[in-house]
């Protein structure tokens, strides 16, 4: 029992070490040749363009339901006109980055884990190494840069669409003045809010790509192992995103001062 517990701890520590090492290599690769621009553009297409529909839809509905919920509470204080502010603060600081990242994690962390996992169990990763090409360079780094870059813009899009969703509810159900909604939504945003809202997707993009690639590259045990790696990648990426979100929010609040 004690032995198996020790074994368990050791294996997990080893996994964390390997994960950190892979992440570091993927990052360090950026600063030396060769770089795989073609592969990066292809990944940008897969991650960015491919995620557009899902990001637009989640953004819109989240913004809409936010407007609905906050109006409900605000009405009790006779402060319905603050709806725009609440929607914009919540979308930009929190829900835009987090929901977009969770969606992209579901789509792409799993995609990366299953693609690299299949390559791993069919010895294609070994073949690549044997051919003198570093998989962390050719496979991981392009996915890392593409995810960080695209998630940044997807989050901006999600924020905007979320505000539009809120506006739709404000106009149709709450019968608020649309001009007032937009003005209060814009004006309430401070530099600190935007900074926080756009730092997060870059960090979350890092998590999604490194976790997806790590689980893929360490897959073993045939097709079943690939399936397991895929599921684990999505779970780990999602939990990590939410946990890191808490810490980053707190850290940035301290750094940027009270708002």
């Amino acid at each position: 029992m004690a032995f198996s517990l020790g074994q368990y701890v050791k294996e997990n520590l080893l996994a964390v070490q390997e994960y950190s090492f892979l992440s570091w290599r993927a990052f360090a690769n950026l600063f030396s040749q060769p770089r795989y621009l073609g592969d990066m553009l292809q990944q940008m297409d897969v991650i960015g363009v491919g995620s557009l529909p899902i990001v637009v839809l989640t953004g819109f509905f989240t913004g809409a339901v936010l407007a609905l919920q906050s109006a409900n509470s605000l009405a009790r204080f006779g402060a319905l006109s603050f709806t725009g502010q609440l929607v914009s603060m919540s979308m930009v600081r929190e829900l835009g980055p987090v929901l977009t990242s969770l969606m992209v994690a579901g789509r792409n962390a799993s995609g990366m884990a299953s693609e690299l996992g299949s390559m791993r169990v069919t010895e294609q990763i070994d073949a690549m190494r044997a051919l003198g090409t570093d998989p962390s360079r050719k496979l991981v780094t392009p996915r890392l840069t593409a995810t960080m870059f695209m998630l940044f813009f997807l989050t901006i899009l999600s924020d905007l669409v979320g505000l539009a969703g809120g506006a739709a509810i404000a106009l149709i159900l709450l019968r608020l003045d649309l001009n007032e909604y937009w003005t209060s939504a814009w004006q309430t945003l401070r530099y600190a809010d935007v900074f926080m809202g756009l730092t997060k997707p870059v960090l979350f993009g890092f998590i999604i790509a490194t976790i997806g690639c790590y689980y893929g590259l360490s897959a073993k045990g045939g097709t079943q192992g690939v399936g397991r790696a895929t599921t684990q990648a999505v779970v780990a990426a999602s939990v990590l995103i939410l946990a890191v979100d808490l810490f980053v929010t707190r850290l940035l609040m301290v750094m940027l001062g009270p708002l």
Binding site: M119, T122, E123, Q124, A127, A130, D134
Partner: peptide, 23 residues
């Protein structure tokens, strides 16, 4: 180290048991 090996591996060729082509 692994990073140093890539250079050397380019001077060798291997045919894997299961071919291991990029599918």
């Amino acid at each position: 180290r692994e990073t140093e090996l890539f250079e050397l591996r380019r001077r060798l060729g291997i045919v894997f048991q299961e071919s291991a082509l990029f599918d």
